[in-house]
Every structure is written in structure tokens, then in C-alpha cells.
Design a binder for these strands. Sequence first.
DNA 1: GCGCGGCGATACCGTGCGGGTATGGAAAGG
DNA 2: CCTTTCCATACCCGCACGGTATCGCCGCGC
Lengths: 285, 285
Amino acid sequence: MERLEVRELVYFTAVAEELHFGRAAARLGMAQPPLSRAVQQLERRLGVTLLDRSSRRVALTEAGAVLLRESRRVLDAASAAARRTRRAGRADPCLVLAVKPGGDGGLLPAILDAYQAEPGALPVELVWGFGEREVLLREGHVDAALLHRPHPDLTGLDTQDLLTETQLLVMPRSHRLAGRTRVCLNDLAGEPLPRRPGASEGGSHGPEVHDLGQLLHLIALRRMVAVLPSSIRGQLRDDLVAVPVDDAEPTTLVLAWPEHATSPALAAFVRAATAVAGSATGHGG
Amino acid sequence: MERLEVRELVYFTAVAEELHFGRAAARLGMAQPPLSRAVQQLERRLGVTLLDRSSRRVALTEAGAVLLRESRRVLDAASAAARRTRRAGRADPCLVLAVKPGGDGGLLPAILDAYQAEPGALPVELVWGFGEREVLLREGHVDAALLHRPHPDLTGLDTQDLLTETQLLVMPRSHRLAGRTRVCLNDLAGEPLPRRPGASEGGSHGPEVHDLGQLLHLIALRRMVAVLPSSIRGQLRDDLVAVPVDDAEPTTLVLAWPEHATSPALAAFVRAATAVAGSATGHGG
DNA sequence: GCGCGGCGATACCGTGCGGGTATGGAAAGG
DNA sequence: CCTTTCCATACCCGCACGGTATCGCCGCGC
């Protein structure tokens, strides 16, 4: 059984994504002939043709499509391995948490306090991200992330539900819906909504947004509106209003971490977060 | 960001498991010096020490333990990638299913029939395995597997529950408990039970078993008894008896497949199995 | 219809790295 | 103190990976 090397998978992935050996080679910073040879060799070793190449067009075969998907998993796992190992070896151990600005449901201060009270708590470093927190987690940039269900794909992650919230439509005071006490999703037809990074271009979407302040600013500028968990209430500028969206699916704040994680520091953090969420459940909305 | 190679991870894993460069090198079929160098180089590239080596003793550091765990994931993903790609490229496409002999709850014939009736059904190839079916699945040897909860770790797999069964104690007619109409787990203290491959040596366990006929034979020979799902009733030799174990946790037969699988053939198979299980739920026990 | 241009494959070459052997050097045990 | 054990270092070699030059195929345009 031949062994598959990371380098080969990187090369194949580049070609499979570009469907063009020249461009793939450029992207890899190498010449085209060795790239062609590497892919051929990979095909020979696997005993499978991965690409149909007619000197005018390159296309993935069925097996090639399988390998592309599997390669991404391998490469993700490899870079996650490197990053997690490096982080574990740092002289100053700390716990890295990915949070969406304004997306902590107001629980984060209490969670951090509770965690620092745990025995053996490490300093917590926060990484701010919008849509890419799940990727940060999968690729080993962070130890844990606060995500919002139902949006991200949680397979391969362990999770702890923290808080379920209804959602609000946030808009400028002058907006046509600003006087309503409640709206439903149909009312939003045609409204520019923030684009989730990586989301398809369908529908009416505004510019990509990476920061809560920027988002609120854009809303105030009437460039868009947004549907957000009700806990942002406390962070709104006074030129914005928020009303419940009746039929928007409630969103659940979840703490997620890589499955099979063994770090005691992470375990303590999960304990702390769970405790805080549990005690908060009765009170707020 | 330096690139992590599969070869290095294989080497490191061997050393981390053996905690001995000489033995690890032997296991890898290579000499010890290049192995030492490879690990040093890996450490340099990661900027992390992975092993504490005092020329008398080799021990994993914290970071080394992290990398060992992560390496296994990468290597599993890599060999799964190779196998799945090869299988996808075969001239004769087929669906490979891992089953425990006698562990199909009696549903398999109906499932196979239902699947063959689906449009675009492929020939189904069966692979028989006892405790290693989950590994077969994770490493890409098979497309799907019939597993029994709660035993295996299902993280990273998608699953469909098929059938929940109570469990029976299977023993020779001459066994001291053979006259009972029901037993509980306490009654089994000191009885030799089949060892799950990979299970710890604790408790009273008989030899490892890889085949249902062999297991039943050993039971008949009074070498052991076994707790099995009630659907084996129909497969017992007449020199064996089975009685319910009152407090044994019910076992659920689940169909499992790699998460994110996209094959339409697999999807059809899952559909067929779900349908069969659903229609069988009311009837059998 | 012929030539041109684009693109992947092939040919050939150099060098850097992965692997081998021989040896050094530290540490534990008798 | 000598021996044994085991990891690291020194040194050498072959190959495989990457680069340049070129071929061959094919589609397109004049």
C-alpha cells in the first residue's frame, strides 16, 4: 500500500481547483512540468485517473472529485496539527477563543470570570471573527469558538449549548419598518442583508462585513439592515431600532471545540461556560 | 508557515508510540540516525520540543502529546483518502458495507432487497468484521458499517438508527444459569466474556473472537458466555440457550457512514435501510 | 487550409534532501 | 572504572524533485 504525501495532495488540490496546470503551477510558485509529473505520479500510485485532460480542457473524474474532498480533509487536519502543536508548545500557555464581536450573548464577561476562578485556569486570548470562526476552530487557530446555531456545520466538533435567543431586525430609525412592533421575514424581501462570508451571491446582499461597529454603521447609513440575536439590544447606537422578527428561527449560542480535545484547561473553560449559561437561563432573554 | 509532511508524522508517531528511537526505526524498516534527524527537523520547523530525551529515557512533552493525537487524525485521513479514491476509481463501482457476522439484527436481507430496488443501486459487497468495523469505516475500507451503540465512538460519522434490541445471555444448556428465565449483570461476575478487540485486560475475559460461529462454538465448549442482541435468537445452535439480561443496556443497531459523504449510491442505501427499519419497528423485538 | 498560439507532456539536467554506515558521547549499572 | 545502552553527530551517496527547453496536440483565425 503506497503512501500518500501532503505535497502531492497540495499539488493535486491546486490543479483540481484551478482546472488548469499553468495557473495551478503559478499559484504554487513552481513551474508547470514538475506539477504535471507529480499529478501523473499520484495517479500511477493510486492506479486511478483523477483528471481528464484534453489539451484544451481539464476536468475532474469521479475519483478525482472524491480525492479533492478527501484531500481538503487531510490538509485541514495537517495544518490544524501544526498549529495546535505550536500552541501547545508555547512558553506562555493560554486558551484562545474565537468570538463574534457582539455575538457573545452578553455571557462572555461572566464566563471569563467563572473560568478564572477554576483551578489551573490559563489566560484567555480572544480572537475576533465574523463568519470564519468555525474555520479558525477547524484549522487549529483557536481552542474553542462561540458559534450560532443553526448556521455553521458542527460535524466533527463537540459543543455545549449556552443560550437560545429570539432574533431582532436592526434598522435605522428612519426605516420603513421602524415603526412596527414586530415584523416577519416576508417583510424583508428586497432588503440588503449582510453577506455571510462564503455565502452564495443569490438574494439581495450588501457588502461583506467583518466587524460589529462597521455593521451598525452601515445600518445607520441605510446601506443594509440585519437580523441579530436579541442580546445585541444593549450594544445598539441610539440611531438604530430593533424589533422582533416573529418567524425567524431562534438562534442558539453554542460553545464549540474540536472533538477529542483533552486539554484540562479547555475542559475547565467548558465547565465554567456551562455553569454560567445554566445560571443565566432563567433570567435574561 | 512551514509545511507538515506525512512522512514526518509517520516517523514521529512511531517514536512517540515506542518512546524509543531504535525500536521505532526498526518498526519503520530504517536506521536510527535518519529517524533522529527527521524528528529533530520536525521540532525545528515547528519551533517546539516534542520529546524529552535523556539518553536513557524518551518521554512525550505536552506539545508532543498534542501532535501525537493530531498526527493520528492526519494519517487516518490520508489513508482513508487513498482508499476512498481508489474505490471510487474502480471500473466496477460497488458499495462496500461492514457487518458483524450475526450482527445485522435480521434486517440485512430486507435492506439489501430494498436497496436493489432503488434507482441506480450498485452491487453491494459485504466485509465481515467484529470489533474493527468502525476502523474499517474511518480508514476508508468500507462505505458504511452496521455498528452497535453504545459501544463505538461515533464522532465524525453520520448515523441512522435502525433497531433497538434488548440483550440476551447466551450460554450452554449445562450452564448454572441456563435454568433461569432472566438474569442480571451481577449474576455474570466471574464469567468469561468475549474480549472486545482492543479492550483492556481487566475483568475475566476469554480469548479474542473474530467470528460468530467460533464464538458460539466456544460457548458450547463452556469456554465463555456472551451477552448479545436478542436478534441472534434465530442463529443459535440447539446446544445453547439464551435468557434476557434485565439490566443490560439495550443495544441499538446503527448504520454509520463518513460524514460529508456525497455518493448518491450511499444516500440511496441509507434511504433503503431507514425505510426497512421504520417498517420493521412495530413488528419484531 | 495553413499557420499560430495555448497548453499539457516529455526530455534532460542539476542539486538538495533523505537515507545509510561509522562513530561519538552521556548516563546507568555492576 | 569499564561496559552497555541509546541518542546524536559526521560523512557519504543516490534519487527524486524542481527547473529549462522542447515537443505534440488541438482549436481558432486569417
